[in-house]
Simulated scan of single mutants.
Amino acid sequence: MQRNRQHITVVGGGFAGLTAALTAAEAGTKVTLHEAHDTLGGRARTADGPYRTNEGPHALYNGGPHWTWLKQRGLLGPLAPLPPLEAARFRFHRDGALRRTPPLGFLRHTLRTAEQAPVDLDFLTWATRVAGPRAARDAAAYSGVALYHHDPGSLSARFVQERLHRAAALPPEAHYIRGGWGELIDRMAARAWDLGVRIETSSRLDALPLADGPVIVATSLAAAARLLGDPGLTWESGRTVLFDLALRRRTGDPFVISDLDAPGWIERFSAQDPSLASAGEQLIQAQLPIGPDRSKADGVAHAERLLDLGFPGWRDRTVWRREAVSNGRTGAVDRPGTTWRDRPAIDRGDGVYLVGDQVAAPGVLSEVSFTSAVEAVSLALRATRLDLKRA
């Protein structure tokens, strides 16, 4: 198929799609972006007030490649710093009780960087050899904050180790966009408009555009499989209950509860950004991974048990709540013997490129979307130069 190499089409207006559109436009290429919904953002959308929720807990890691890229372009925007007093309200759930400090063995293992974990062994087996069975279970459960998976110990040791080190880094790598990730999306969209990107919302494509330059597909993997007619575009992801809650404020509520008995994470996002909730209220977002044989009710019950321990009287203080199941929408997870290189390739041939958080690109969480988007544009432009030389 002969394509017009002076134009790139991006399908999907989430973080990956906007990254690809900006990267291509900065290189001087004409870009058209199609978004099926009436608003941009994908899983990076932030709900309108009064409770400005993301689709699950969202953080931006400053150790990732997109941090510098966003900062250089003035897109990072104001961050929401965590007050020191709130940072001290980090709680660990272990053996059925809340604790103020993590287990010593867990800390030793988390901060251990001398030994790189193997790819072909599961994390729990490897970590048990390194730190003992209890510390290994603690570390596996804690890593769930960056995995959204019900059994992190069963995944590739190398895969989990990288995310564990990033999630437990000191000083913390995780930072928060003031006003929610929707603010970042708005800045990226404005930048795209300024660069001449044609953005078409409510524009659902059922087939690839013909003879109109390279196409970058920045949708979910399931949607990409349908669009490309390729059922082989699959990779394992997590299954997680997302639980959002607005409570009347109470002094002494914890900032975070990290469950070390089973993967689960509850965070009071209004602790660092009060604008996310109404005056006198606080916004809590939680993610509780569930296995294939578990229901949404199981995840909600898990959250409620943790809330009972950490947020006294939370039921009477509740002014709003929302529950959902996120299935296959939390990024790739790599089983033993696999790495990011084994995921669906970015270059699909015939000028078609695939980007997102489940494709063959390195990084943690949204970093995979960013890295794959930049790589896809680089491959498309490289192909353009080769075609021009042949012409």
Results as ranks from 00 to 15, higher is better:
residue 2 Q to H: 07
residue 14 G to T: 12
residue 18 L to T: 01
residue 20 A to K: 14
residue 24 A to V: 12
residue 26 E to R: 15
residue 29 T to Q: 13
residue 29 T to V: 14
residue 29 T to N: 04
residue 32 T to M: 08
residue 36 A to R: 14
residue 39 T to M: 07
residue 49 G to N: 11
residue 53 T to C: 14
residue 70 L to Y: 02
residue 70 L to G: 05
residue 74 G to D: 05
residue 74 G to E: 00
residue 79 L to A: 07
residue 82 L to N: 05
residue 83 P to A: 13
residue 95 D to S: 13
residue 99 R to G: 05
residue 105 G to E: 03
residue 110 T to H: 03
residue 119 V to R: 14
residue 119 V to H: 09
residue 124 L to W: 01
residue 127 A to W: 01
residue 128 T to M: 10
residue 131 A to Q: 01
residue 135 A to M: 03
residue 140 A to K: 08
residue 144 G to S: 12
residue 147 L to K: 12
residue 152 P to A: 09
residue 155 L to S: 00
residue 157 A to H: 10
residue 163 R to D: 06
residue 166 R to W: 08
residue 167 A to H: 11
residue 168 A to N: 04
residue 172 P to D: 14
residue 175 H to Y: 07
residue 189 A to V: 12
residue 191 R to H: 13
residue 202 S to N: 15
residue 202 S to R: 15
residue 205 L to D: 02
residue 213 G to H: 14
residue 228 L to F: 12
residue 237 S to Y: 03
residue 243 F to S: 11
residue 245 L to C: 10
residue 246 A to T: 07
residue 253 D to R: 06
residue 256 V to T: 12
residue 268 R to L: 05
residue 271 A to E: 04
residue 286 A to W: 04
residue 291 G to H: 00
residue 296 K to G: 15
residue 303 A to N: 11
residue 303 A to M: 09
residue 303 A to G: 11
residue 306 L to A: 05
residue 310 G to V: 00
residue 311 F to E: 02
residue 313 G to Q: 07
residue 315 R to T: 06
residue 317 R to W: 09
residue 318 T to E: 11
residue 326 S to P: 01
residue 332 A to F: 08
residue 335 R to Q: 13
residue 336 P to C: 14
residue 355 V to S: 03
residue 357 D to V: 03
residue 362 P to E: 09
residue 378 S to I: 00
residue 378 S to T: 15
residue 383 A to P: 06
residue 389 K to C: 04
